[in-house]
Amino acid sequence: MSFRIIVLAKQVPDTRNVGKDAMKADGTVNRAALPAIFNPEDLNALEQALRIKDKMKDAEVIILTMGPTRASEIIREAMYRGADRGYLITDRKFAGSDTLATSYTISLAVKKLAPYHLIISGRQAIDGDTAQVGPQAAEKLGIPQITYAEDVQSVENNIVTVKRRLERGVEVVSCPMPALITVHSSAPACRNRNSKLLMKFKHARAVTELQEETKDYTELHSHRPYLKIEEWSVADLDADFEMLGLTGSPTKVKKIENVILQQKDSKVISSDDKEVEALMVELINNHVIG
């Protein structure tokens, strides 16, 4: 039996690079102007998985993502860097999922990929920064979790040993597999694309992607089955509908307030106490700090 590693990844809007060019005139973020990227810490997670694969002949790395059709871009991106194959979980019924509904959906998909040894994901996604889906999925799967990983040090005799990055130091822990690991941004960056893999997988497509393509991939995909990105909808997961999407999400968004970041004119103030205090109050009220 091969050593199976499932990497959980998410395509996210690049919220880190909200520069002045991505701001609307009213000072709010123009979300459409933000590129969709591979969630940064998920790339750190992929690298940890690939390092295990480098050392272990029979290891396979499977990438699993949930999102719209377009999210298969990150599956291809992972294949260019060394992932063996990928699964896209996509369905309108998943829309509006909070972390609990998301982790439920992911746990169902992971169960279909059993037996597995490790699940590795980024600590958190930059659009929500919650860091909740990993631990919640681990709980639903009934397996231990190791969060804030900086280095998967060894995988031996069914025991995984991991160095964790905490606020004030590091901790080395070990546990039996299967286990779920979430990787911190202080872990090594992901390797670059490999040009051979890029050639090999550039025509990899999910089913719904093929429907949108003008080119006919039928023949190519019948000759090269590895180019097919597996796609799962609600029907493929043995799901309780009550636990999916908006219905399955206990948290509700009551209100969204845009942070006003743009200051039209430069203000010049003195170092006078009153003026400094007024500036700090303004920054706090605008949520720029605090």
């Binding site: 659009d127 209100k255 307030e257 845009n258």
Partner: peptide, 17 residues
Amino acid sequence: RPAFGGNIIATIINPDT
């Protein structure tokens, strides 16, 4: 809480759980 990279402030509630 702040969300979306700190670009929005969201108010979240849990009505039923």
